[in-house]
Amino acid sequence: MSLIVDRNLPLRNTFSLRRKRTPSKAPSAFSETVSTITLGLPALVAFALLWEIAPRAGWINALFFPPLSQVLAVLWEMIVSGQLADHIGISLQRAAIGFLLAVVTAVPLGFLMGRYSLFEKASDFLVQTLRNTSQFALLPVFILVLGIGEASKIAITFYAAVFFLLINTIVGVKSVDPLLVKAARSMGTSDWDLFKKVIFPSAIPSIVAGARLGVKTSLFSVIAAEMLAAQSGIGYLIQNSSLMLETDCMYAGILTLTIIGLLLNYLLVAGERRATHWRGSGESGPN
């Protein structure tokens, strides 16, 4: 699945911590997590200290880089006032709607393309062309056609997620073991049952891996769209604070995004592990 690269993400957002491959067995996964934390913590603490000390000592301009404590104080204020929750809520809502629309579109389409070669041949060229058109390049088009309201932001998240899901569904459907299909047919499985009980379950790990990437790109795309054209959402918060030179507010927004990204990633990894728990060796999908 080497075709999946987060190449469309704005640079700003790519600094969120990349998850290392999760090992398979539960006990070692736990100790692995512990050692990741204990070994990884010093670097993180050093980074936080630098962020705090550098502007205070005058090494860098405090207007552009306010100390971490100041950022956290603003963040806390925004949490208490409920302002942050509103922004998070609207961003997540946009991403979720776009993502769910992508699932509903991509999974059935992927099944058809993966199963019927004629259908795939007929649609592959179009899909490849669309897939390689950046969703950000299309944002002006979405705005022209759908207006600056919710629809254009949902459209960009849909567009961002749909191809990850589509391609991984196709890969999953195609990689079904022919022997399992043969065995199922020998037991008198109907066509519908074959889809439901054999092809779909064997495609699930791949679909879930695609969904994981799709969720992330959905969220990042909505942030970018909000920076360009919105009156609410985390992206708007970051962009607007930057324009107003409220840099502490801006960093609070960026920090929020990082935390959401981290939480989402852990959630998705856990979801993926659950969906593939029957696998003896826990080969995980692409990151």
């Binding site: 022997l179 399992l180 379950p201 029957w278």
Partner: peptide
């Protein structure tokens, strides 16, 4: 090759 469904 047994042909068992690995998810079952």
């Amino acid at each position: 090759q047994y042909a068992l469904f690995p998810w079952r």
